[in-house]
Nucleic acid binder design. Structure first.
Lengths: 335, 335
DNA sequence: TTTTTTGTTGAAAACGTTTGCCATTTTGGG
DNA sequence: CCCAAAATGGCAAACGTTTTCAACAAAAAA
């Protein structure tokens, strides 16, 4: 690859000033006489000079780049978050290095090491769990981190999310109140704290409040895929289950279609409430009632918070955990 | 931000060799005695040294980073492509700077300038059109570019895609052969060449082959959103249309739900074939028949092609345009 | 005038690598 | 053993910026 043709030095020579002055102009430093500034800007335009961000990064130790870890870009829940992240990032002139973790501990570790090598100014983490090794790596690197739309077992890390436990509780209560006794909880792997500590707890809290005994037969653990819950539909009905609170939209659609394809009428014979309010809940037929989350905002606020942390205005410390409001959308899968 | 603590120089000192040797070890250069290599590697491990990719990028003029332009990360079609891109990128140790273009000419131009400033080694472009200014910028920058899953009017740029025109023709033929006369074409904005030059042409070719007159009333141009085609459903039925080939899955689901919600039976009263075979076509009820595209592969191959171009083994020139096979998935929206 | 003060500019040292070139060592053939 | 060739390793110059510090000039105060 040939050498960059027009550098700050070229501009300096043409404009008969020093590199330092050109740098000042480029960076909007006010200590430059307007006439000089104009002269330099003219040359910049004429030569079509564009500063080399890599050199800049080396000299300034800031790359204006943040790393974003996402389990899978094709998962609408995380994609919605990512959209908010990207928008705010571009508003603040940051670039995003996005990588799929495939929810694989080894891969995520490799990925983060790579990001740190690239000297990202910050990291946004989305995912179901954070390996200890990764946590250590991040902490020792001193790079600001924000966890978005996820729950990981660590109270030092800044987080933006909703109150999953309460949301789950409210959803379960709704189902119980529609005079259903047998309300199931269909969830992804319980090894992830967001499922076990948050959503399952919320489900249990609702049962307790309505004095319904907890029956672990009604907790249906799946691998989180559409197909896995589709396959459970028949079994659930045969077991006499009349409603289910479902921990994510993939599973909810799978369950719904499984039921429908087996001739079960939703909501007449079975009610469903899902958790994430992504497109899936709106394009299915019947549409699916769901807890609503401000997904875009979670991403946006996470990125905003990260910019503060990166600026190092340490005041950010106090608002380390942001819990946004959730809601409920009544659709066709509940009465 | 404080100075990087352990640098190549630290390692060199500890291992009693020069920076150059450390660099050789790190980069797997063979000109180093195994004993020396081992000694250096031990120190690297002990000090937990990690090379600074920014400095490396400056010195070597390679950043092992590629820019990816995506209209919208939440669009399943492009997200599937992006997944393939990301997988292959990480296989080849490249990082991805991902940015939403929002399909906005100004924004995409700004974004690409930014990417070039960041010295990306290559660019993958997805989108509906490429502003002239952008094309010029890319060409003059001499950065390799691959267009993925998109059609833009330029025959110098490397492209990976399917034969949209033929696919559209085959789909339309199927609908015509099911004894339907009034087959509509529901499409996104016709100002985009993929819609007008490719898919519309395919639609017309099918009509011609069956000796059916083209009726421009049957070309329904929308803004490409779910809602826009949902809203057209009623009008289409009232106009006596019996089937539609639809240019993307968003529109297809919108149309389908619009029909269903108006009491029209699919496929009995109306048949639909869509274009992209994303999840949407599988989770809707009825499911939607669709042209199938190897979306993941398109992304993967695009990235693979880009690595070749970046390596500069100029042999890549001959296989500049990759057209992958498409297929057809018969589902519930056609008989 | 002379002295301060303020505002502009330039020189040069970082930043942490890679790499071309040269010097030194090692190796192996005779 | 000697010598040429091959293997190994060091030096120092890039790479293109930012940033500190000092110098200088102009304006303000004395």
């Amino acid at each position: 690859m040939e050498k960059q043709s027009v550098t700050i030095y070229t501009v300096a020579r043409e404009a008969r000033v020093s590199m330092a002055t050109v740098s000042r102009v480029v960076n909007g430093n006010p200590n430059v006489k307007p006439a000089t500034r104009q002269k330099v800007m003219d040359v910049i335009k004429r030569l079509n000079y564009r500063p080399n961000a890599v050199a800049r990064g080396l000299a300034s130790k800031k790359t204006t780049t943040v790393g974003v870890i996402i389990p899978r870009i094709t998962n609408p829940y995380f994609a919605d978050l990512a959209l908010g992240i990207d928008d705010i990032a571009s508003m603040y002139k940051y670039n995003i290095i996005l990588t799929n973790s495939d929810n694989d501990d080894d891969k995520v570790l490799k990925v983060v090491r790579n990001l740190l090598a690239k000297q990202v100014d910050g990291v946004i983490f989305m995912g179901y769990s954070m390996p200890d090794e990764l946590r250590d790596e991040l902490k020792s690197s001193n790079t600001p981190v924000v966890v978005a739309g996820s729950v990981i077992d660590d109270d030092e890390l800044a987080t933006v999310r909703i109150d999953y436990e309460n949301a789950a509780k409210e959803a379960t209560l709704k189902l119980l109140d529609n005079a259903k006794d047998h309300v199931a909880f269909v969830t992804g792997p319980l090894k992830y704290v967001i499922n076990s500590d948050d959503k399952l707890s919320g489900y249990k809290a609702a049962l307790a409040e309505r004095h319904v005994d907890f029956d672990d037969q009604l907790v249906v653990e799946t691998d989180g895929t559409y197909q896995s819950s589709y396959d459970q539909a028949k079994r659930l009905v045969e077991a006499g289950v009349k409603a289910a609170y479902v921990s994510n939209d993939n599973l909810a659609v799978g369950l719904l279609n499984g039921l429908t394809d087996n001739g079960v009428k939703v909501p007449d014979d079975f009610e469903i409430i899902s958790s994430n309010d992504t497109t899936y809940t709106k394009i299915s037929r019947p549409t699916i009632s769901s807890i609503t989350q401000p997904l875009y905002d979670i991403g946006a606020i996470a990125m905003r918070l990260l910019t503060k942390l990166m600026d190092g205005t340490d005041s950010a410390t106090d608002e380390k955990d942001v819990i946004l409001d959730h809601g409920f959308a009544q659709r066709q899968s509940t009465r």
